[in-house]
Amino acid sequence: MITIKTILAVLIMAIVTYIPRALPLTFFRKKIESPWIRSFLYYVPYAVLGAMIFPAILYSTQSTVAATLGLFIAILLAFLEKNLVVVAMGSIFVVYLCEFFLVR
């Protein structure tokens, strides 16, 4: 099953994963002056996270219903500014409980 081609494939994957990670960080040393770009970069983390969370979270477990409940619990706990681990554990627990009754 393992051939030179599969090893090459993994190395190519590693390279095309590393390059976008490294290019800006290693070559971009100056602080950006443009207020628009600075504002843009200020919003990037929230924009990335928003798009990464939704709608993917709905399909992150076996049952969409359970995932939706988990989502609400996570939002509630996060709104109360609970610790990261508490938020994660809370939603895992709710999904587990929910799927216990819903799945199979």
Binding site: I53, T61, F79, L84, S91
Partner: peptide, 24 residues
């Protein structure tokens, strides 16, 4: 399978925990 499935939500919940306090 059950634990694996339930834990699938963990990273997303973590993202929510990071984003919501700032947006509040």
């Amino acid at each position: 399978d059950r634990i694996q499935s339930a834990m699938g939500i963990a990273l997303y919940a973590m993202f929510i925990a990071l984003v919501i306090p700032a947006s509040k």
